[in-house]
């Protein structure tokens, strides 16, 4: 599992985990994220069962597990959070922040010790190490109950499946040529994102935020002007292609 420090200000660090060379071939590659704020950690979309050992080892290499008292699941998909039962075993005091809509479903992955904080549809802000962390609504992108994470201090947006790309081989961590990158995002967004209305609502919301780095759950990370380029591209893209 590759660990990459994405952002490092005096009191907040962002880490990305992914491109695990041990990952079974037929499993989709995923990016996991960790935000550490003044010694307190938030683990975001920690991944599936298959990734758990590598993810746990990667996290422990950065922080003591006692610091990880917050876990976030953007939605209910197995590649996002099917490892929940295993994290529950080693983060007994942690809180899982996830859409209220999915509580009864997510508990199927096993959750005996952690506490579930059902995020309301309009979103929520929590304190992590004294700093604000916002859970931004992203409903129907692609899941009917869906959130992203925004850190206003670092200006990082963890954007779940929005901005995801399916690229063959072992792609780099960052988008280099945005135009060339679009081909790897187009099919994914057209098919996985069901609603143009939801898409426009999210774009409007995100345009009001100051985002310097946009971190999707699959594929490459967008930095600086690429974020705006992505929002413009996404705005033009018709989605919901499954309906013929």
């Amino acid at each position: 599992m590759i660990t990459h420090k994405l952002s490092d200000t005096s009191d907040i660090q962002w880490y990305m985990f992914g491109r695990d060379p041990q990952k079974p071939e037929k499993i989709i590659d995923t990016n996991q994220y960790l935000m550490v704020s003044n010694g307190e950690a938030l683990l975001m979309d920690p991944g599936g069962l298959e990734l758990f050992p590598a993810m746990l080892a990667a996290v422990v290499n950065i922080v003591e597990l006692t610091s990880v008292n917050n876990v976030f699941a953007s939605h209910q998909d197995p590649d996002i959070i099917s490892s929940l039962g295993l994290w529950d075993g080693c983060l007994p005091r942690a809180v899982l922040h996830a859409p209220w809509l999915w509580e009864g479903f997510l508990r199927h992955f096993g959750m005996e010790q952690m506490r579930y904080n059902g995020l309301p549809d309009e979103g929520e802000t929590i304190k992590l190490g004294g700093r604000d962390v916002q859970f931004v609504p992203a409903h129907y992108l692609h899941s009917s109950g869906n959130f992203h994470v925004y850190d206003p201090a670092s200006k990082v947006l963890m954007s779940g499946d929005v901005g995801a790309s399916l690229e063959p081989g072992n792609p780099d961590l960052f988008v280099e040529d945005f135009s060339a990158h679009c081909q790897y995002m187009e099919g994914f967004h057209q098919r996985w994102m069901p609603s143009n209305r939801a898409k426009l609502d999210w774009i409007k919301r995100v345009r009001q935020l100051d985002v310097q780095m946009m971190c999707p759950q699959h594929g490459r990370v967008f930095v600086g002007e690429q974020v705006t380029a992505f929002l413009d591209w996404f705005e033009r893209l018709p989605v919901g292609s499954g309906i013929k």
């Binding site: 069962l49 758990f52 422990v60 006692t66 075993g89």
Partner: peptide, 20 residues
Amino acid sequence: ANNAYQKAELLLAGKRSKQL
């Protein structure tokens, strides 16, 4: 779960984690 924790321990190569 037992197997997963053992694998993680191997990957940590001796680094101790009380919680783990």
